[in-house]
C-alpha cells in the first residue's frame, strides 16, 4: 500500500515570499532525516555498508568510473574520492553549458554522452544510478549545500510553490503530508518529513535502487496527480526546493528505505 499514497499538510517550513528560505537555525531545527522514521532493522541496513544493498550499485559505479581508458571518468576527473567530494551535496545546480538548472543525474549524462560518446541512458538505468550512488557516497557526512545563484534560487522558489499546491484527484499537497503530518501513519507507512539527503536510495519495496524523481513520482501517483516525464522542469524545481529545505542537513547517501 505504501505505493498507493506516499505523503500530506501546510506549515510552510520557512520564510518570506521572495528570498529563498534560510535553513532553520540549529537551535530549533526540527528537521529529521527520513532514516529517523524507519524501523531499526532498516536503519541498521543503511548504517552498515556490508548490509546496505545500495553498496552494490556503488561498487558498479566505481567500476564504471574507471572504464573506458582515455575517455574514462578517471581520465578527466582523477580520484573521485577527492574530485567528487561535496559535488552531490550541491545539486541540482545551474549549469552553464546546459543553460539551465540540472540534476546530478543530468550532469553525469552530459559527461557520458558529451565526453564519452555513450548513448543516452534510459531513465532509472542501473548504470546511471550506479554512477550517481558512487558520486553521492563521496558527499556522505557533508552538509546539504545548495548553490545560491539566481537561476537555482528561482528554481527552488518555483519548487516551493509546487510543494504547497494541492494536486491530484485526492487534492493533497506535498506540504500537507510532509510539513503538517510527518510522524503520523498513512496506513502502514510513517510519513517522513520528505528530505532528500539520502538519495539515490535502495528501496526494499522496489527491490532496487531508485532516484529522487522516482520517489516524487510515487508520491504524485499516490494522490492521483498527473506525473511529469523524467527531468521535467517541475521535478527539477521540486528537487531544488527539497535541497534548500534540507540545507545543512547531513548527507546520508546512498540510503535504504522500506
Amino acid at each position: 500500500m505504501k505505493a498507493a499514497l506516499a505523503g500530506l499538510v501546510v506549515v510552510a517550513l520557512a520564510a518570506s515570499a521572495q528570498a529563498p528560505a534560510p535553513a532553520q537555525s540549529s537551535a530549533q531545527d526540527m528537521r529529521k532525516s527520513g532514516s529517523a522514521f524507519m524501523g531499526e532493522s532498516t536503519r541498521a541496513m543503511q548504517r552498515d555498508d556490508t548490509q546496505n544493498p545500495a553498496m552494490l550499485w556503488v561498487a558498479n559505479g566505481e567500476a564504471a568510473w574507471h572504464t573506458g581508458a582515455k575517455k574514462s571518468c578517471t581520465a578527466c576527473h582523477g580520484d573521485a574520492t577527492k574530485s567528487m567530494r561535496g559535488v552531490a551535496a550541491r545539486f541540482p545546480a545551474f549549469d552553464k553549458s546546459a543553460g539551465k538548472v540540472i540534476t546530478l543525474g543530468q550532469r553525469i549524462e552530459q559527461c557520458r554522452v558529451g565526453k564519452q560518446g555513450m548513448p543516452p541512458s534510459k531513465p532509472e538505468a542501473d548504470e546511471l544510478l550506479a554512477l550517481q550512488s558512487y558520486i553521492a557516497l563521496q558527499s556522505r557526512g557533508m552538509p546539504v549545500a545548495p548553490p545560491r545563484d539566481a537561476p537555482t534560487s528561482a528554481a527552488a522558489e518555483r519548487g516551493r510553490a509546487l510543494f504547497a499546491q494541492r494536486i491530484g484527484q485526492l487534492n493533497l499537497s506535498c506540504a500537507q503530508c510532509h510539513d503538517a503530518n510527518w510522524g503520523r501513519k498513512l496506513a502502514g507507512a510513517t510519513i517522513p518529513q520528505g528530505h532528500a539527503n539520502a538519495y539515490p536510495i535502495y528501496r526494499l519495496e522496489w527491490q532496487g535502487m531508485g532516484s529522487l524523481q522516482r520517489r516524487l513520482r510515487n508520491c504524485m501517483t499516490g494522490v492521483r496527480a498527473a506525473v511529469p516525464p523524467p527531468d521535467a522542469q517541475d521535478l527539477i524545481d521540486l528537487e531544488a526546493w527539497l535541497a534548500l529545505r534540507a540545507e545543512g542537513m547531513t548527507m546520508e547517501s546512498p540510503g535504504v528505505r522500506p
Binding site: I167, Q169, A225, V227
Partner: peptide, 24 residues
C-alpha cells in the same frame, strides 16, 4: 481539511488523466 472530497470534480489541479473528470 486533508480529507478528499469523494463527490467533487471541480476545483482540482493536475489530476492524472485516468482520473480526470471522475469522482473518487
Amino acid at each position: 481539511t486533508i480529507m478528499p472530497s469523494y463527490y467533487r470534480t471541480e476545483g482540482l489541479t493536475r489530476v492524472a488523466p485516468a482520473h480526470a473528470g471522475k469522482t473518487i
